[in-house]
Computed example of a mutant assay.
Amino acid sequence: MPFIEENDLLDLHKDVEKSQIINERLLDQIKFKNKDLKKLKIQRNVFVAITGLFLIGTLAITSFTAGLSTSNSNQNNLLVSIDSLEAMKMRSDNLKIQNQELSLVKEFYLAKEFLEKETIYSVQVKSFVENNATLASEALTNTLFVKTNPFYAYSLGNFETLEEAQTFRKQLVNIGFSDAFVASYKDGKRVKIEAAN
Rank of each mutant, 00 (worst) to 15 (best):
T134F: 14
A87N: 13
S84R: 12
L10H: 10
K39Q: 14
E17R: 05
S103A: 15
T51L: 09
A195E: 15
L53K: 05
R190E: 09
F32P: 05
S184Q: 00
E6M: 01
L37M: 12
F145Q: 00
A60L: 09
L59V: 03
T167H: 14
L79N: 10
F54L: 15
S69L: 11
E107T: 10
E24V: 00
A136S: 07
E163Y: 06
I82K: 03
L156F: 00
V146C: 04
S137L: 02
L53R: 02
I61E: 13
I97S: 08
I30W: 02
F47Y: 10
T161M: 03
D8N: 00
K96W: 06
M88D: 01
A153W: 12
Q166C: 10
I50F: 12
L55A: 03
L59F: 14
Y185K: 04
L12K: 03
N76Y: 11
F3Y: 12
L10G: 04
S155F: 02
I50V: 13
P150G: 05
L59M: 12
A133F: 06
D187S: 14
E116V: 03
L55F: 06
D83I: 15
Q29L: 02
E107G: 00
I97F: 07
S178P: 03
F181V: 13
V105H: 15
Q171S: 13
S92N: 08
Q100H: 10
T161G: 03
K18S: 09
L95W: 05
E107I: 06
Q124F: 05
G188Y: 03
E116D: 07
K126T: 08
S103C: 11
N158P: 07
N149E: 13
Q171F: 09
K35P: 01
S127M: 04
T51R: 00
G57M: 05
A153N: 15
K14N: 10
L85D: 01
F47D: 08
K33C: 12
K96Q: 07
T65N: 06
N174H: 02
S19H: 03
G67F: 01
A133Y: 07
T167P: 09
A183D: 01
L162W: 03
N132F: 04
A87F: 08
L37Q: 08
L68Q: 11
K126E: 07
N174E: 04
K39G: 05
L40Y: 08
L78W: 04
T167G: 11
N72I: 11
R169S: 09
K106Q: 12
S155I: 01
T148I: 15
F177Y: 15
V123F: 00
K112E: 13
I97H: 07
L95Y: 06
E6P: 02
S92L: 11
I4Q: 06
T161C: 01
D11H: 08
Y109H: 15
S84F: 15
I50Q: 09
K117F: 01
V48S: 11
Q166G: 06
E163K: 13
Q43I: 09
E118Q: 15
E160L: 14
L115Q: 14
N158I: 15
